[in-house]
Design a protein around this nucleic acid. Structure first.
Lengths: 173, 173
DNA sequence: GTCTATACCAGGATAGAC
DNA sequence: GTCTATCCTGGTATAGAC
């Protein structure tokens, strides 16, 4: 991965996240990256390929976070860490997550498998704690994570109070 | 509003919701509506104007739902109805909501004022019930609503169990 | 690996007839 | 109110030189 390649990816991420994939032209990406437009196609085949390159980079980091939580053995602690997730994401990764969430709403690109393992491990945790509907509880946690992430990404950091009161409802404080 | 005008709006909503605003060409809208492309511009000025026409139509119905909830006097019941909201949306309105949520992620178009009144009235309800952080609680309800709506719109109807367990956490069953 | 030049097409939008 | 024809810009993508 050359320096220019990285510059292209970085610029594209910036623009895709802010204006959307379809509304961002390759010429704008090239200009922002300080690179000729042709170079983008040399390196990434086409615009779609550029998007894929961005996604692959980010997905790896994301699954990293998820695996950290999955390997926590104490059920209560695992749930607590999952709920805390959207509050811990580093601001430098905001653009990536914004792109992911925006893309969810675009035909075809929706893929939840990334988070499936996490959900399963949360269901197990709720089960171990004797909850009545462990799978639905895991789903609720995910709804909460997505909801808070959305709020944080669109309006700036979500309030810590939100985490406090949700943890309270689970008696995890 | 002529029949063709309505046909244009309907077709555009369908396509915008499925493929996104930027990825949908006016020619595709025209074809789907069985109408000449020029007619779109006669009636709606430009593509943006077509989007606005769609939004205005839907926003009215949406504020209708919100106002129904706001005017409930009993605090507990008001909260309960708000939480139930994403489970009550008629399927015929799915496309509209999908468009709204997708547009949230597009630069500039994000506008939360529609839901602001609801949030305020929820904060009052939590306050009346003696909660410690009424505003944060109202925020959490909105996070829940958005999260469930997202899940329902992207993967099909959300499970009723989700509602059941959340109502349980508020002791509203 | 990178740039310049360019092909080619599709997109939004307008004009003018009916 | 509606259609047909057309303009023009800008978007993706390729070719070829360095």
């Amino acid at each position: 991965m050359t320096e220019k390649q990285e510059k292209i990816i970085w610029s594209a991420l910036e623009l895709f996240a802010e204006f959307g994939f379809d509304a961002t032209s390759t010429s704008k990406v090239a200009k922002k990256a300080g690179v000729s437009e042709g170079l983008i196609f040399r390196h990434f085949e086409n615009k779609e390929g550029l998007l894929m390159a961005i996604m692959n980079q980010g997905i790896e980091r994301a699954t990293g976070y998820f695996n950290e939580i999955i390997k926590i053995n104490d059920p209560a602690e695992r749930i607590k860490q999952a709920l805390s997730l959207p509050f811990l994401i580093d601001e430098s990764e905001n653009r990536f997550w914004k792109l992911i969430y925006a893309l969810k709403w675009q035909r075809g690109s929706y893929d939840d498998s990334m988070a499936d393992e996490l959900k399963k491990s949360l269901a197990e945790a709720f089960n171990a704690l004797g909850y009545d509907h462990p799978y639905a509880e895991a789903e609720l946690v995910q709804v909460f994570i997505d909801g808070v992430a959305t709020e944080a990404l669109l309006k700036g950091k979500a309030s810590e109070q939100l985490l406090e009161i949700i943890l309270n409802k689970y008696r995890l404080t």
